[in-house]
Amino acid sequence: MSSADFASAWLLVVLCAVSGAYCLRQVRRSGGAAAGETVMAFGMALMAVPLGDRDGWQALVLGAVFSGAALHAVWLLRGGVHHAHHLVGSLAMAYMALTTAAGYGHGGGLPLVTGLLLLYYAGYVLLGGARLVAAGGGCAQRTYPVAPAESAESAESAESAELTRACRLAMGMGMLAMLLTM
């Protein structure tokens, strides 16, 4: 592994760990609603650690964790289709872990599955980035008067929503980067 690959792998670890810490903070505030994102972010950070070749058992453990996260996402689908992204993410992480366990390592996996996941996450990142930029522009153009208490509350809520979007975008970019290295 070159020094540039090593540095970018550690940057991905830090990005995912920071996203996980933010999601963990949101779990406390929301009563557990962001638990799936927290597991995904910390799991992605763990998978991105540049350890060289992983033993089969490490990849199997990660595969089992993400398979459990996929089952949790299936359970969340009862609340609406908007939870389907968690299912796709959990299944993608389980797929990457299990291809590593099967000995495929880098350059492995099924090309069709990897290609479909790359298309999904490329679209997700582009759409998420566009939404984040649009949300930032919408807040700056606000010109109508607002009561002081309402403005402080809405500003905090808008900031939290933008941070959540940024966190999701960072994790989407992390998934895209990990899929590109397969």
Rank of each mutant, 00 (worst) to 15 (best):
R78Q: 06
L110H: 13
Y22N: 07
W57F: 11
R28A: 15
A34Q: 15
S154M: 14
L127K: 12
A34W: 15
Y121T: 05
A140Q: 13
Y121H: 04
L117D: 08
V74G: 01
G109A: 00
D5Y: 11
M1N: 10
L24D: 06
A92G: 07
S151F: 14
G105Y: 05
A166C: 01
G68N: 00
L112T: 12
A7V: 15
E156M: 10
A161N: 08
E159W: 11
A69E: 06
T114Y: 08
A34G: 10
G107P: 03
A59V: 04
V74H: 03
R25D: 12
M178S: 07
A73V: 01
G31L: 04
S8G: 11
G138V: 11
A17V: 01
A7S: 14
A152R: 11
G107C: 03
A147F: 13
F42I: 01
Q58S: 12
H86F: 13
A7T: 15
P148A: 03
G32A: 04
V65S: 02
L87E: 02
P111A: 03
A97V: 04
W75A: 15
A135S: 09
G172W: 03
A92L: 02
M93S: 04
A130G: 14
V65P: 04
S67C: 06
A170I: 08
V88T: 07
L127Q: 13
V74Q: 00
A147M: 11
Y95L: 01
G123R: 03
A166P: 01
L76A: 14
L163V: 03
V125C: 14
L132N: 05
S157C: 10
V81R: 14
W57S: 10
G20I: 00
E150Q: 12
A17Y: 05
A45S: 04
E150N: 05
L132S: 04
G172L: 05
A7F: 14
G137T: 02
L98I: 04
L98K: 00
M40K: 07
R29S: 13
Y104A: 15
R165I: 08
T100A: 12
